[in-house]
Design a protein around this nucleic acid. Sequence first.
DNA 1: ATTTATTAAGATAATTTTGTCTTAATATAA
DNA 2: TTATATTAAGACAAAATTATCTTAATAAAT
Lengths: 141, 141
Amino acid sequence: MSVIFSRECEYAIQALIFLAKQERNTWISIKDVAQQINIPQHFLGKIFQKLVQKGIVISQKGFSGGFKLTKDVNKISIFEVVEAIDGDGYRTKCVMGFPDCSADSPCPIHNKWKSIRDDFVKLIKSKKLFELAHEIKKPGY
Amino acid sequence: MSVIFSRECEYAIQALIFLAKQERNTWISIKDVAQQINIPQHFLGKIFQKLVQKGIVISQKGFSGGFKLTKDVNKISIFEVVEAIDGDGYRTKCVMGFPDCSADSPCPIHNKWKSIRDDFVKLIKSKKLFELAHEIKKPGY
DNA sequence: ATTTATTAAGATAATTTTGTCTTAATATAA
DNA sequence: TTATATTAAGACAAAATTATCTTAATAAAT
């Protein structure tokens, strides 16, 4: 299993970081992205379709078409990508799975988990593709 | 999807908290646990089998048999249950899914995630069934 | 001994997630 | 206008997770 995000979401994050590393205003094909970051091509296709619907990337069909980011790389955060693909379950559900856990009727670790989770949400909101793309220069990424 | 733990693991935690609420040294049947916390009975059976193998509970077959905790309720933490069911993936894998991320070759949020994750691990190590069972008195748990 | 209530364990099924294949639509280049 | 490279989209398949069903083993009560 993955840690917090679905596999799909992990791929989305990795693919967008890859896009952010490329020259601005050029169309990048699914094939290129999938090969470079080593993830299944057609699965990535579906993921990109969702990202198009959410307005994070735009697509261009046909010869030398592909995808590019709609917004500036320092305006797109991990948080935004996660919300687009996985939704908000990771920050709204009870970490122990109690169905009735809520602020009104908190489970025994509700508040401490909330505090930790808030730190995490703050982290992924603060991290933009720009920074991520520039920090990732080592092989393997 | 669940938050961090698998459904199986969430059920294990909930079931053991329920056991911790019962009178010590009495056998509690799967059926009772499953009905009370509203989870699938046979699925819970398999989970308990794993918990027996890990030495967290012991079982007694036959008439008026069931399960009980092996150790004192203030000696079993959420952490222990999670390790038994889900293993350590949640605290060892890269949160963005980069396959080569490690302390030696950290992804851009490796260290900040580690810090948050360490807080979480500390939390679930500190929470014993004893405390959890006593804090859960409201309906719905 | 027989009945009954239980865990143990394996087989099967349903659901969800992940991954693949195929065809259509489309845009560019030749 | 034809060939080619691409996304779009749906069907399909595989794998993993979650859930159910069935039978065997076992222990207690009668």
